[in-house]
């Protein structure tokens, strides 16, 4: 049991980061904090992919006669794209928050909802 937990140590960490992100996203009313949560959530997935690609005892995937075991490079390559997507999402989210701040003069979700239901 202990071995199982320790053996999957990286996954436990990832799950923790993911849940922290998701919890922040759901529980915070401040839109900026929501975005922060979202970014954490996405980052956790990136970590997940990267650790997927790790092969025990494997080395950097550069072909060399000395090594026979390499880590899988594909997940890392994929994550380059995912990082770009994540950055774009966060940037767009920030832009929206700025616009919301201009239009509503607040970034608190409850106040915005109240203003929306009043109008």
């Amino acid at each position: 049991m202990i071995e199982y937990i320790l053996g999957h140590f990286n996954y436990w960490l990832i799950i923790t980061v993911m849940m922290v992100g998701l919890y922040t996203l759901i529980s915070r009313a401040n839109l900026m904090k929501k975005l922060a949560g979202l970014a954490m959530f996405q980052t956790a997935v990136i970590l997940f992919y990267v650790s997927l690609g790790k092969v025990t005892g494997g080395t950097v995937p550069i072909v060399d006669d000395q090594f026979t075991i390499y880590s899988n490079p594909l997940p890392q390559v994929l994550m380059l794209t995912a990082i770009v997507v994540g950055v774009a999402t966060t940037a767009l989210g920030f832009a929206l928050v700025i616009r919301i701040k201009e239009a509503y003069d607040t970034v608190e979700e409850y106040e915005i909802q109240k203003m929306d239901s009043d109008s």
């Binding site: 998701l22 996203l25 979202l38 996405q42 989210g93 929206l96 928050v97 919301i100 509503y104 915005i112």
Partner: peptide
């Protein structure tokens, strides 16, 4: 529209 887009962004990204 802004708040609609924002909540779509959150949910869509999730």
């Amino acid at each position: 529209a802004l708040t609609a887009a924002f909540s779509y962004l959150i949910l869509g990204t999730i």
